[in-house]
């Protein structure tokens, strides 16, 4: 079609104008990338250095004291020991399994209920009030009751992680569904989309960016709740390991436990982000940093 030519030739002229410029831009950009990376690593190293100075000189600062904080080298040695111990596998396996079930159930219920509540009036009026009453209760406050409710401590710990992840996922899903443009829905309906295919074809993908945000936040609270729950009841798990190290006064292991928890949390967040990108190749978040 001839009438399309202007926009096409415009795009072409931009392409032909850039090649002599682009290698310079690219090499400058990669130089910048290295500088940025070095800068970031420097920040990290500085933190470790400060930790080392404070801990090895057992600096007392009045309100806070570093007398009992193990220095980095000691933590590294303990970490190396743990890495070679068969117990590490058991701790990781227990924790990851609880996260898998707790988070999986929360995602299932959170997204499912969120789609219904965000879209259907009866679900909104019938399901939201009881959930709103439960929402302000912190997951950690559920620990005593859940120990009474679940015969196995495994069940109670999974329940705590489930509660922790459920509300961020649920609320973000509802928010996402309510944000789907009524025009998009009207267009879909006029194209022959029925009531139920509307959920799979329009509502769910329309709410997807918000759902992924909810999953990401939910994953964070999930780890938070798991570690707390493991400290109270459990025989294996990385949270239990951290708390047990405190009770047996193995202070370096406390820090190892903390770092492992941090690494696992970071890894699972990265997994969610990766999953989000795979699921939504069309989605490009707006904005940037200066």
């Amino acid at each position: 079609m001839t009438s399309l030519q202007p926009s096409l030739s415009l795009a072409g002229s931009v392409d032909t104008g850039s090649p002599d410029l682009s290698p310079v831009v690219a090499s400058a950009a990669s130089g910048w990338a290295w500088a940025r990376l070095a800068f970031q690593a420097g920040g990290l190293l500085l933190c470790v250095l400060i930790w080392h100075v404070l801990a090895s000189h057992r600096v007392p600062l009045g309100v806070i004291t570093f007398a009992n904080v193990p220095p980095p080298a000691e933590v590294l040695a303990t970490a190396w020991d743990l890495a070679q111990s068969p117990k590490l596998g058991q701790h990781l396996y227990s924790s990851l399994l609880r996260i898998f079930f707790g988070f999986g159930l929360a995602a299932l219920f959170g997204i499912g209920l969120g789609l219904l509540i965000g879209r259907l009036r009866w679900a909104h009026d019938g399901l939201l009030p009881p959930l709103e009453v439960l929402r302000p209760i912190p997951a950690v406050a559920w620990i005593p009751l859940s120990i009474l409710m679940f015969p196995s401590s495994e069940g109670s710990m999974i329940f705590i992680t489930f509660i922790g992840a459920l509300f961020p996922i649920l609320l973000n899903t509802i928010h996402g569904v309510e944000g789907v443009s009524p025009r998009l829905i009207a267009s879909a309906r006029s194209l022959g989309c029925g009531r139920w295919s509307l959920f799979t074809e329009v509502i769910a993908p329309g709410a997807a960016p918000s759902i992924v945000t909810g999953l990401s936040i939910g994953m964070g609270t999930c780890w938070f709740c798991l570690v707390t729950a493991e400290m109270i009841s459990g025989q294996f798990g990385i949270g239990y390991y951290t708390w047990e190290s405190y009770t047996v006064q193995n202070y370096a292991a406390i820090v190892v436990g903390m770092l492992v928890i941090g690494a696992l949390g970071m890894g699972s967040s990265a997994l969610i982000n990766r999953f989000g990108k795979l699921l939504m190749p069309w989605y490009q978040p707006q904005g940037g940093r200066s």
Binding site: R183, A186, S187, A188, P205, G206, A208, W282
Partner: peptide, 12 residues
């Protein structure tokens, strides 16, 4: 068929 002003294609 209904055609709106803009932004009613499915972005995904």
């Amino acid at each position: 068929a209904l055609v709106f002003q803009q932004h009613t294609l499915f972005p995904w």
